[in-house]
Amino acid sequence: MAQYMFLLYDSEEWYDNVTPDDWQQAMKLHGAFAEAVEKAGARILGGEALERSTTASTVKQREGAEPLVTDGPFIETKEALGGYYVIEARDLDQALELAKICPSGNVEVRPVMNTSSDSQPPA
């Protein structure tokens, strides 16, 4: 068996008018997907929903200067996605400090969304 990472891209406008019913429906679809994976004899090793891209921050390494923290997602197109970590940290400040020492030129830091059973659609 080999391992693959699925990167899920969707329109974020969906979040703007999402109802609790829509939310439950989406959760069901992901549940069905998990069952289908299992039925195929494959396994989900991990996965998270992410908060909207507006909540992202980006840490950029700079030559001869402190890494630069900016608001928003990583938008350059020259670089390509080369890996990922899921980190549990105290707060965004600690996450950003760790992103600064992460061996990558650019790290987008995106909060993981709460999708536990008592979670609400994101405000």
Binding site: T54, T55, D91, L92, D93, E97, A123
Partner: peptide, 17 residues
């Protein structure tokens, strides 16, 4: 919303920051 969702803390930064 971003402060809440991203977990921007409510603290005075450490000396090195």
């Amino acid at each position: 919303k971003k402060i809440a969702a991203a977990g921007i803390p409510y603290r005075i930064p450490a000396d090195h920051e």
